[in-house]
Design a protein around this nucleic acid. Structure first.
Length: 305
DNA sequence: AATACGGGGCC
DNA sequence: GGCCCAGTATT
């Protein structure tokens, strides 16, 4: 969860997740749908798929034993060099250098490296390897991460830093050129039956929002009739909703929500595992992208008032 | 080597 | 409103 996600964001998800899946066996036996539901809103959903698969490996071929070496951990899906090292360092006090965002910031400043290129990254890994002690690895690892999190922040607090004097950092903050964020547009259809249940479709297992339940979608309002035809949706009262903007790392998505109420539908939704009727407020929420969840929650809130 | 992959907290 | 986060997998 903590890969590319701040601690404060993760904490509530972590508590719910551990309550839902208390053991690696429980996680391994859970359905991917339930895991994604617990992950819903946290983003980077490949992490959830990978964690589920990794739990299944540990509970199955791994015979329930957690690996002891970083190299074995790194063979599990979703576990890269930094995570593998952090696990064995914290859990087993095994010497293994990490280079998460905190450590990277500390070592970059300490050694006066400003680049973000691959060569700089390799040098930082070498420094991480060099500084990692042979004993008290867990303590050292936690300490240098906390130094980055609490003192050597984006705006560093050099006055309270124990490395001040040794550090090569010149106090300058380097601003990277910001890549343009292309604009994309999509129409999200909120299709409700007579009971007010909304039609959800499962997204493909990979790519954006992989495996999550989302709203039927098309590129423009012109394509909406064809999209409804494919779904077998007929009739219903149409209402436009205010547009929603959703920012991704590398593009901005402008969403035009369209609501169709009391439709009839030809296909039997139960026939496919990739469609479902979701009854807001009654049924346990499936794994949905954050903007979809917000949209549907907004409807519930509006109706309540 | 470059890019895809979310979402929210914080300044 | 921009920046960035306890990175990894894929191309």
């Amino acid at each position: 969860m903590l890969q590319q996600t701040t601690v404060t964001t993760v904490i509530p998800y972590f508590h719910r997740f551990i309550a839902d899946f208390p053991t690696v066996q429980a996680l391994a036996q859970a359905s991917l749908d339930d895991v994604l539901a617990a992950w819903s809103g946290l983003g980077y959903y490949a992490r959830a798929r990978n964690l589920h698969a990794a739990a299944q490996w540990i509970a199955g071929p791994g015979r329930g034993e957690f690996p002891r070496t970083a190299s074995t951990w790194a063979t599990l899906p979703g576990v890269g060099p930094s995570t593998a090292a952090a696990i064995v360092a914290f859990a087993f006090d095994v010497r293994a250098p990490i280079l998460d965002a905190n450590v990277r910031r500390v070592l970059s400043r300490y050694h006066g490296l400003t680049g973000r290129d691959a060569a700089t990254l390799r040098r930082l890994w070498a420094y991480a390897e060099h500084h990692t002690p042979g004993t008290d690895v867990a303590t050292y690892t936690q300490a240098i991460m906390d130094l980055g999190a609490l003192v050597c922040r984006r705006t560093p607090d050099c006055h309270s830093c124990p490395l001040a004097g040794d550090c090569a950092h010149d106090g300058q903050t380097i601003t990277q050129p910001k890549p343009a964020r292309p604009e994309r547009h999509a129409v999200f259809a909120i299709i409700e039956d007579a009971e007010g249940a909304a039609l959800l479709v499962r997204r493909p297992p990979h790519g954006v929002w992989g495996g999550l339940w989302s709203l039927p979608e098309c590129a423009s309002l012109d394509e909406l009739p064809a999209t409804l035809r494919v779904l077998g949706v007929e009739g219903g009262a149409v209402a436009g909703l205010p547009p929603v903007r959703h920012l991704f790392t590398h593009f901005a998505l402008s969403i035009t929500p369209v609501r169709l109420r009391a439709v009839t539908i030809r296909t039997t939704v139960g026939e496919t595992r990739d469609m479902m009727w979701y009854k807001r407020g009654v049924q346990h929420r499936p794994g949905m992208p954050a903007p979809v969840r917000r949209l549907l929650d907004q409807l519930t809130k509006t109706e309540a008032s």
